[in-house]
Simulated scan of single mutants.
Amino acid sequence: MRTSIKKPLAIAGAISLGVLFSAGGVAQAQEDDWDDWAVFQADLQPLNNQQGWGEAWIEFDGDQNEATISISYEGLAEEFDGGPFPHAQHIHINGNGVCPDESADEDGDGLISTTEGHHAYGDVGTSLTTEGDTSPDSALAIDRFPGGSNADYERTIVLDDENAAQVWEENAVIVIHGVDPTLISEEAAEKESDLDPDLPMPATAPALCGSLLASQMGQMPEGAPDTGGGFIAEGNAGLMFGAAAATFVAAVLAAGYALRTRSVTGSK
């Protein structure tokens, strides 16, 4: 039984509601209340036969670009070769503001790669790293993302004008990458990443996805919902995997997915 993430809507009745944003009212709110607060929320649902789930929140509070971002998830790939399995996470923009469905699997290998899902969620707009740079240049900085099966992430950053506008216009999507290779087809598990040939496909394929929509809550819940992950990044403080991330890449490529082999052998 999985640990339940606190569902904000379950306590909505106990919270005094502030300004209510509807899909049609966000554009007007962007013009009239750009310097006021607003909260956007995404339910993170599994892609590619993964077993995880989660929530993401973005809160603007008195500044049109400064945002506190909180993400909690559980049930993703946990480890590889003794280290935490890195999970890159981004705000994707300039797509259709949605998550891809199974029809996005163009090559029929049973996996939606990051590029196959691009038409739905768009480009990497912000890299939600634990510290340092948050631009698309850090999209694959696997040593600066949370890792393991569970994580609680919180960081306040300044979004550029384009990213902030895409969030306000409800055209932004949160994507968590990194899939368990034992839960996808052997064909897909053995492929190189479509983003970086030095990485395996499971390292970069999308695992969780959710569209950011204006929340009807007056404020973001206090702190990140607890999933037991024990990880919070605030400002420029965060968790670094360092050698563990390098070990992850080398081990996946060199060992020929030892994790999958062990799983298959154990099932016989």
Rank of each mutant, 00 (worst) to 15 (best):
19 V>P: 04
56 A>H: 04
130 T>P: 06
121 Y>S: 01
206 P>K: 03
214 A>T: 09
20 L>K: 02
132 G>S: 05
208 L>E: 05
219 Q>P: 09
225 P>W: 04
74 E>H: 02
91 I>P: 01
267 S>N: 15
31 E>I: 12
180 D>C: 07
135 S>E: 07
233 A>C: 01
157 I>L: 01
74 E>F: 09
223 G>A: 07
37 W>T: 15
137 D>L: 13
38 A>F: 09
43 D>M: 09
75 G>L: 08
46 P>S: 03
242 G>W: 00
152 D>M: 08
218 G>P: 10
254 A>H: 06
53 W>K: 09
34 W>V: 13
7 K>H: 08
238 G>K: 02
149 S>L: 03
161 D>L: 11
1 M>K: 14
130 T>Y: 04
202 P>E: 08
157 I>H: 03
210 G>V: 10
121 Y>N: 06
84 P>A: 14
30 Q>H: 12
206 P>M: 00
231 F>S: 14
222 E>Q: 08
164 A>Q: 00
8 P>E: 10
181 P>E: 13
97 G>F: 10
67 A>Q: 02
169 E>P: 04
37 W>S: 15
58 I>F: 00
70 S>A: 15
126 T>L: 01
91 I>F: 01
7 K>I: 10
49 N>V: 06
163 N>V: 11
70 S>R: 15
123 D>A: 13
46 P>Q: 03
204 T>A: 04
236 N>P: 05
137 D>C: 05
172 A>C: 07
82 G>V: 11
233 A>K: 00
161 D>M: 10
159 L>G: 00
193 S>N: 07
2 R>I: 12
253 L>H: 12
